[in-house]
Simulated assay, not measured.
Amino acid sequence: MTSETVISIAEQGIMAVLIVCGPLLLLALVVGLIVSIFQATTQIQEQTLAFVPKIVAVLVGIVVFGPWMLNYMVSYTSDILSNLTRYIG
């Protein structure tokens, strides 16, 4: 296995992680921003107020994006495992 192959496999793995985690991270970012704006306008400085909406939003995001994320990861894993003999040999 050449160094180019290893770098290519690592690049595909990093891209898969970013693609799968991206929607949930973006959702948490947007909800956190909305909660922060709400806290700034109402001057409520409760620390736990920021966590509960983010957790709920991420759980809803997992329900919504879960099948797509699972399908993407299964296809990526299937691709890696089907080409395993090419990578090793």
Rank of each mutant, 00 (worst) to 15 (best):
residue 14 I to D: 05
residue 25 L to K: 03
residue 69 M to V: 02
residue 89 G to S: 10
residue 87 Y to G: 05
residue 9 I to Y: 08
residue 52 V to A: 08
residue 83 N to Y: 06
residue 89 G to A: 10
residue 71 N to K: 12
residue 39 Q to V: 03
residue 2 T to Y: 12
residue 15 M to I: 14
residue 32 G to R: 01
residue 58 V to H: 00
residue 18 L to C: 05
residue 59 L to M: 14
residue 80 I to Y: 03
residue 43 Q to T: 07
residue 53 P to K: 00
residue 82 S to N: 11
residue 25 L to I: 11
residue 81 L to W: 13
residue 60 V to A: 13
residue 79 D to I: 10
residue 15 M to E: 15
residue 16 A to V: 13
residue 40 A to N: 03
residue 59 L to S: 11
residue 23 P to S: 01
residue 19 I to G: 07
residue 2 T to K: 11
residue 39 Q to I: 05
residue 25 L to Y: 02
residue 8 S to K: 15
residue 46 E to M: 06
residue 87 Y to S: 05
residue 59 L to H: 08
residue 54 K to C: 04
residue 26 L to R: 06
residue 1 M to C: 12
residue 71 N to S: 14
residue 68 W to P: 04
residue 19 I to V: 15
residue 87 Y to R: 06
residue 56 V to M: 04
residue 51 F to M: 08
residue 35 V to E: 01
residue 9 I to L: 15
residue 63 V to E: 10
residue 24 L to V: 07
residue 17 V to R: 04
residue 83 N to C: 04
residue 5 T to H: 13
residue 41 T to L: 14
residue 43 Q to G: 05
residue 12 Q to F: 14
residue 75 S to Y: 09
residue 39 Q to P: 02
residue 55 I to S: 08
residue 10 A to Q: 06
residue 48 T to E: 09
residue 58 V to P: 00
residue 62 I to T: 11
residue 86 R to D: 13
residue 63 V to P: 05
residue 38 F to T: 11
residue 9 I to R: 03
residue 62 I to Y: 08
residue 27 L to A: 07
residue 7 I to V: 15
residue 2 T to M: 09
residue 26 L to N: 08
